[in-house]
């Protein structure tokens, strides 16, 4: 080992030690738990613990609620990611327009929901969504639409929560996109305009390729975030109605912390980890093909 290498190891050692302690160790312990039947009986007496191999995984795959939770999570991600990214990009484009005045003020106002507390805002939105007294149904009533049971109808509960989530998080990616948009060369847009490109053409062929890498990064982060959605359904609907907003993470929380079936819960965590890894790999591959990364 050269002196330089020793110095490098010395400098990185503290961080590596922390990573090993708070990341690698717990993750491997969780993986070890996922092949045992650790439950409340094991909490009572360690001798009740058994090695079950892949038993937790086969058990999970035959649990209807797990599949429902998986389906709900897919719905959250499938609708939520385009909704959130689309809103962020749309507002960023609006704010980027030269005719908009008071830009810093708009940015702050639109970013504000992101830094508020999830629980407090979820409680407020729960009131807004109330079927009888909620402001949203009052507004709909004013234009002649019958009251909608937002949080009580199993088919509308996910869209309702997504409206809240989008409102809450779009500000973050909006700021990221605003930064990316400011780097789009103005002369290219001007040139495209002179060549007769319309609004859509300029966006599609000039702006989009320029902000491509940012868009990809935002999508990866959003997909990972939506696959782990938990706090919003926990506060707004407690997984209901009829378990229509129970997500994979919610399922894991219930199994693990509420009922102390840590074996089963670790198996869920492992599956969730593989899902997020798979989605991210696919996205990276798409990004490579379009030379964004």
């Amino acid at each position: 080992m050269t002196r330089q290498e020793r110095a490098a190891w010395l400098f990185t050692a503290p961080v590596l030690a922390i990573i090993a302690l708070v990341f690698v160790l717990p993750t491997s312990l969780a993986l070890a738990l996922s092949v045992t039947d650790y439950s409340i009986y094991a909490l009572a007496d360690w001798s009740n613990l058994r090695f079950v191999g892949l038993g937790n995984f086969t058990e999970l795959l035959s649990t209807p609620l797990f599949w429902r939770a998986l389906g709900n999570t897919m719905l959250f991600a499938g609708i939520g990611v385009p909704m959130a990214i689309g809103t962020s990009l749309f507002t960023a484009l609006l704010l980027d327009d030269v005719t908009v005045r008071w830009k810093p003020l708009w940015r702050v106002l639109l970013f504000a929901p992101y830094v508020t507390s999830v629980v407090a805002t979820a409680v407020v939105w729960r009131i807004l969504f109330n079927e009888r007294f909620g402001l949203i149904n009052r507004a709909l009533g004013a234009i002649g639409i019958a009251p909608v049971d937002w949080l009580g109808d199993p088919h509308l509960s996910i869209p309702a929560i997504l409206i809240f989530v989008t409102w809450k998080i779009f500000g973050y990616n909006m700021i990221v996109f605003t930064a990316a948009l400011s780097a789009v060369p103005g002369e290219l847009i001007e040139a495209a305009r002179l060549d007769g490109a319309g609004r859509w053409g300029r966006f599609r062929h000039v702006t989009l390729p320029a902000i491509g890498p940012t868009l990809l990064l935002a999508t990866v982060m959003s997909v990972a975030g939506f696959l782990q959605i938990f706090a919003e359904p926990y506060v707004m609907t407690q997984g209901g109605p009829a378990q229509s907003t129970t997500t994979v993470l919610y399922f894991m929380f219930d199994e693990g912390f509420k009922w102390w079936n840590l074996g089963q819960a670790s198996a869920v965590a492992f599956i969730l980890f593989l899902m997020i890894l798979a989605v991210t790999l696919v996205q990276t591959r798409i990004g490579r093909r379009y030379e964004w990364l």
Partner: peptide
């Protein structure tokens, strides 16, 4: 009413 505790505040 088909309501959860989260709906009847």
């Amino acid at each position: 009413p088909m309501a959860l505790s989260t709906e009847i505040q």
